[in-house]
Design a protein around this nucleic acid. Structure first.
Lengths: 349, 349
DNA sequence: GTGAAAGCGCTAACAG
DNA sequence: CTGTTAGCGCTTTCAC
C-alpha cells in the first residue's frame, strides 16, 4: 500500500480511500492510484483490514461427523450464499469427536470468524457447541437448544407429499420400508406418512412400518418380507433412495412390474441412486443446497446485526416424479412453498 | 491481551512471552499470566499474529469444478494433514468457471494464505492457476505445467493390478468396459490394462475396449453387447464401479454366475456401489484420501521453506478383493508400495 | 526477568 | 480534496 501510494505520488491515506472508493477524491487521483495498484499487482492485506474492523469477513463451517453425501450439498449452498458477498469459508471437520470440535471452535474464535455454521449428516439434534459471542446457525443437524437457530428439512411434510402422490394416483395399499427407528429422520418420515394416511382413513399396508437399515441390502430383504407376508400392497414408500433401489430389485426379480403392479417412492433424490434404479425412481428431495443457502443468509443477517433468531426453520421437501410411480392423472405441482416456522402449521398446504 | 496482562500484573510484552512460551520468564510469572488468560477466556487474535508474521497459517483449497464424490475424500485428507498442525483450511469452489476461480485466487492471496491446494474431479490436467508468490500443489487434477507439483493417482498401475489379479486367478479372456475415451482416466486405465495383458501375450477379449459413459446404464448396455457379440469372456474389468454394477446386473439376469462364470472388477472403491453390487464388487481403490494427505504434506514442507518440487507424483492404487472376483489361489498382497515419481518406473513392481 | 517502545498493513478521524 | 496521525492486537528487540 505504501508502495502504491508512493508510485501514485500520494499519501497512504489517500491511496486507501481511492482503493476503497471512500471519501472525496478527485477522479484523476483515484485513477492514478488504481493504476499504480494494478501495475504493482497490489492485493490489500485482509488480515490488517480485519484487525481494524475487529472481524474477518469469514465464517466457519463446522461438521459434526465428517463430510459426506449430506454435508456436501449443504456446504455448496453455504459457500454459494457466502461467496456472493465477500465472505470466505473456513472448513473444520469435527469427525464426531467433541474434543476435536471444541478445539476447532476455539480456532475459529481465535481467527475472529464473523459467524459459524454447524452441520452434520443426521437429522437428530445435537448438543449446542456452546455459548459463543458470535452468531451460530445449525443446518440439517439441529441444535438441541431451542435458543439456537436451526435450519432443517421438513421430513414429515416430505413424507406427506409422497403418500399424497400415491393416493392421488390411485394406490390404496401403501407399505413403508425405512431405516433404523433410532434415527429421527426415519421416525419423522414414518410419522408424516402415517398421519397423511390417517387423514384419509388409511393405514400402512403389510402390518406397519418395516424398520431396518439405510442400505440396499435391507431394501432387498424388505422386498422379500413384503412378498412373503402375503399382504396386498400396490405401493411402497421407502425411507431412502438406497432402500427403494433394493426393494425395486427384489420386486422386479419376483415378477412385479413397477409402476404397474407396485408404485415406488424413495427419499433423498440422490442422483446415482435414482438414476441407477430400474425404473428411475420417484423420490422426495430434501433440498439440502437450499438448506445451506437459507442457513448462510440467516447467518449473514445476524452478522449484519439483525435481531438474533431462534427455533427451528423447517424447509419444505419437494416431490420429484420419475417412472417408478406413474401419475394416473396428470400431476399438478403445488404452488411454490415458502419456509415455515416450527410453531406454525406444516408447509403442506 | 492487555486485560490479561493487567490482571496478572505484568506488561503486555511479558504476557505475550508467557502465553507463547518464549523468552526467559520466572515460572511463577508465567503461571500467573496463564491463569489470568484462562479466567478471561482469552483467545489470541490470529489476525494480529498473522499481520506480524506476514502469513496467516491458513491454506486455500480451490476446486476447479465443484465438489463431489472425488473431491470429498481428497479434502478430508488435506484437512486431516493440515489440522494436525495449526493450519486452517479456506474453501473455495470454482464451479468450473475460470473467472470465478481467478476471483478466488485473488481473495486467497488477499487473505495471505500460506499455500494453495488445487483440486478437481477429473484426472485430465488443467491450466495452472497462475504464477503465485506462494506454494501451490495440484491434486488429482494435475497442472498442465511441468513446473508445478501435482499429486495424482496412478491409474495405469491400478489397472495393471486388476488385470494381474484376474490372470493370477486363472482368467484368460478379459474384456474392458469403460467411460468416454476423451477422459484421461479412461484412457490410462485402458492403457494400463492393455499393457499388462500384452506383457503376457494377451489382448482384450471381445474385440477391444468398450468406451461409453460413467454410468450404470452404460454398464448394463455394455453387458448386452458383450453377450450378443458371442465372443468368449470370463472376466470384465470395468473403468468404474458404476459401470461394473451395470455389467453385473445384465450378466446375472442373463444367467451368468459371478464370479464363477465371469469375474468382475470395478474402479473407485465407491462404498455404496461396491456394497450395493451383487455380489459385492472387487475394485481398485485410488486412495484419494491418501492423495490429499500427501499433497497437504508437500505443501506444508514447501511452506516451511523446503526447495520447491515439481512434476507429477503418482501414488499407487490398491486392489480391494470382494466376492465378484474369486481368488482361485489365495491372493498375496504385494509389499506396500511407495510413491514413485513420474520419471521413474511404474510402481507396479 | 521484566517493561517500554516500535511496528506489522491498513483505516478513520481530523487538519490543512 | 489531500496529508497527517493514531491505533487495531500482538510480537519483538532492546534497555533496565
Amino acid at each position: 500500500m505504501t508502495d502504491v501510494a508512493a508510485r501514485a505520488g500520494v499519501s497512504v491515506g489517500t491511496a486507501s480511500k481511492a482503493i476503497n472508493g471512500r471519501g472525496q477524491l478527485r477522479a484523476a487521483t483515484r485513477e492514478r492510484v488504481l493504476a499504480a495498484a494494478a501495475e504493482l499487482g497490489f492485493q490489500p492485506n485482509a488480515l490488517a483490514r480485519g484487525l481494524i474492523a475487529g472481524r474477518s469477513y469469514t465464517v466457519g463451517v463446522l461438521t459434526t461427523d465428517s463430510f459426506g453425501r449430506f454435508t456436501i450439498p449443504i456446504m455448496l449452498g453455504v459457500e454459494d450464499a457466502l461467496g456472493a458477498g465477500e465472505m470466505s469459508t473456513l472448513l473444520c471437520d469435527g469427525r464426531g469427536d467433541p474434543l476435536r470440535e471444541q478445539h476447532y471452535v476455539r480456532t475459529l474464535l481465535s481467527r475472529r470468524v464473523d459467524g459459524i455454521v454447524v452441520t452434520g449428516r443426521r437429522l437428530d439434534p445435537r448438543p449446542p457447541i456452546g455459548d459463543l459471542p458470535i452468531p451460530v446457525v445449525y443446518v440439517y443437524t439441529a441444535s438441541a437448544s431451542p435458543d439456537d437457530l436451526s435450519v432443517v428439512s421438513h421430513d414429515e411434510q416430505g413424507a406427506g407429499l409422497a403418500v399424497r402422490h400415491l393416493m392421488r394416483t390411485g394406490r390404496t395399499h401403501i407399505a413403508h420400508v425405512t431405516g433404523p427407528e433410532r434415527h429421527l429422520s426415519a421416525r419423522l418420515r414414518a410419522a408424516g406418512a402415517r398421519s397423511t394416511l390417517a387423514e384419509n382413513g388409511r393405514e400402512f399396508a403389510a402390518g406397519g412400518v418395516l424398520w431396518g437399515e439405510w442400505s440396499e441390502a435391507w431394501g432387498r430383504a424388505a422386498g422379500e418380507i413384503l412378498i412373503r407376508s402375503g399382504a396386498p400392497f400396490d405401493a411402497v414408500f421407502c425411507g431412502s433412495d438406497q432402500i427403494a433401489r433394493g426393494v425395486a430389485d427384489t420386486l422386479r426379480e419376483s415378477g412385479f412390474a413397477i409402476p404397474d403392479d407396485v408404485a415406488l417412492i424413495g427419499f433423498d433424490n440422490w442422483d446415482v441412486m435414482v438414476e441407477g434404479c430400474r425404473p428411475p425412481l420417484t423420490t422426495i428431495d430434501p433440498n439440502l443446497t437450499e438448506l445451506g443457502h437459507v442457513a448462510a443468509r440467516r447467518l449473514l443477517s445476524a452478522i449484519e446485526g439483525d435481531p438474533p433468531e431462534h427455533g427451528e426453520i423447517r424447509l419444505p421437501c419437494t416431490l420429484v416424479i420419475r417412472q417408478s410411480s406413474e401419475a394416473a392423472r396428470p400431476y399438478e405441482a403445488p404452488p411454490a412453498a415458502s419456509p415455515v416456522r416450527a410453531s406454525s402449521q406444516h408447509a403442506e398446504s
